[in-house]
Design a protein around this nucleic acid. Structure first.
Lengths: 222, 222
DNA sequence: ACCTGAACACCGTTCAAGT
DNA sequence: ACCTGAACACCGTTCAAGT
């Protein structure tokens, strides 16, 4: 699926072949940033078809080996892309929360923002949740943890107003994250065939978090 | 990360090079089955490092091109592997349910089985949930739907006994699947760093489904 | 310091040819 | 019918060399 072979080979990267089409010289700018952004663009555009380092280099206009001045390997580039993803996700959640004063509604909006982000950038979302990645890349782990912390503090706000039962907010955050992440992952992978049903993702996110919130609510029977 | 280059190149696949080491002849068996099983073994063993067709062929003892008599391309092989995965998951869930008479506890056990399966075969689990796959491969979509149907009927059983509130079981199944799938996905990707905490995955699955069930429970206040 | 060019050991896929 | 062998257009990574 990666190599197209001679068939369908419309795309010819002959820019460096013969007599100087697109005379590519030194980049002389923030090549590192340019590479990350190019990778992001390719990932978001080209769908789940994994991007290649050589494509990234081409789209920026440098040789594919120039990349190794800035990243030890492909995994490192992917880690930075994932990092940017979490930063964007964090920002989206914070934006969604800012508008809503009621902590319960705010919590729900955060969930909706999470699912929205995943559906808006499915490939990017997938890159963000890759097993190997965060273990070896501390800065990635850091933003990831910060994103998780948002969920925890949203729950704490609910607890303060007695809207969610007492107990470790961290422990309560796991089901919360799980249900939202699960919905996002299922939708991104088109697993339940619910896109035929004409319910919007927003609606699904709302109803799912609602079920969750009822489960987390303060109540008097054990 | 895929190509090792000359460095560390201990593994030499010279079996077909010179004077007939491991004289590989025709396979003369169910090559199709052998290929699928080899793919499965490689996927489960070699971790998230995606397996290659050539590796599969090598491990079975045929040329890499022999594969194309049985599968149109790599995606098709992956689809069959995913299909087998869902069959195994279905079986695991059914096994877990069989032992438990109470529908609520049964529901929970199904969730635990789901998470267990994911953690036991992380790479396989990932292959099972790949966006492109099921759309183009009807048999895959079918087992997937059947697995989803198990969740739905587990919920219906709870409703019959008045343990879960009335309403579309299909709609209630979505949060249920989402929370379990989300937990599984997060654990597989080691996203929340909870493996440091000495809580078992089983315990997490139980507590997460418990929160969910409380949210789905029949209750008299709106 | 930053980038190029050639090379290496891999890929997935195609196709004519063998049995 | 089922498989091989050679070929094609790609990969990621390394390394000596250029400015």
């Amino acid at each position: 699926m990666r190599a197209a072979g001679g068939i369908g080979g419309k795309r010819r990267y002959d820019s460096m072949r013969g007599g100087g089409a697109r005379k590519r010289r030194y980049h002389h700018g923030d090549l590192r940033r340019a590479l990350v952004q190019a990778a992001l663009r390719l990932i978001d555009e080209a769908g789940p078809r994994e991007f290649t380092l050589r494509e990234v280099a081409r789209s920026v206009g440098v040789t594919h080996t120039a990349l190794y001045r800035h990243f030890p390997d492909k995994a490192a580039l992917l880690a930075v892309v994932a990092e940017d993803g979490f930063r964007a996700l964090k920002a989206a959640i914070l934006r969604a929360c800012a508008k809503v004063p009621d902590p319960l509604a705010r919590f729900q909006q955060a969930g909706v923002a999470y699912v929205r982000f995943a559906l808006a950038h499915p490939s990017h979302f997938r890159v963000m949740f890759r097993a190997e990645a965060s273990a070896r890349h501390p800065p990635l782990q850091k933003v990831k943890d910060e994103t998780f912390a948002l969920v925890v503090s949203a729950i704490e706000a609910c607890q303060t107003q007695g809207l969610v039962r007492a107990g470790s907010a961290t422990e309560l955050a796991l089901p919360a994250w799980a249900i939202v992440h699960g919905l996002a992952a299922l939708l991104v992978d088109r697993s339940p065939r619910i896109q035929r049903t004409r319910v919007s993702a927003d609606q699904l996110a709302r109803s799912v978090t609602e079920t969750l919130m009822e489960g987390m609510a303060r109540r008097d029977r054990t």
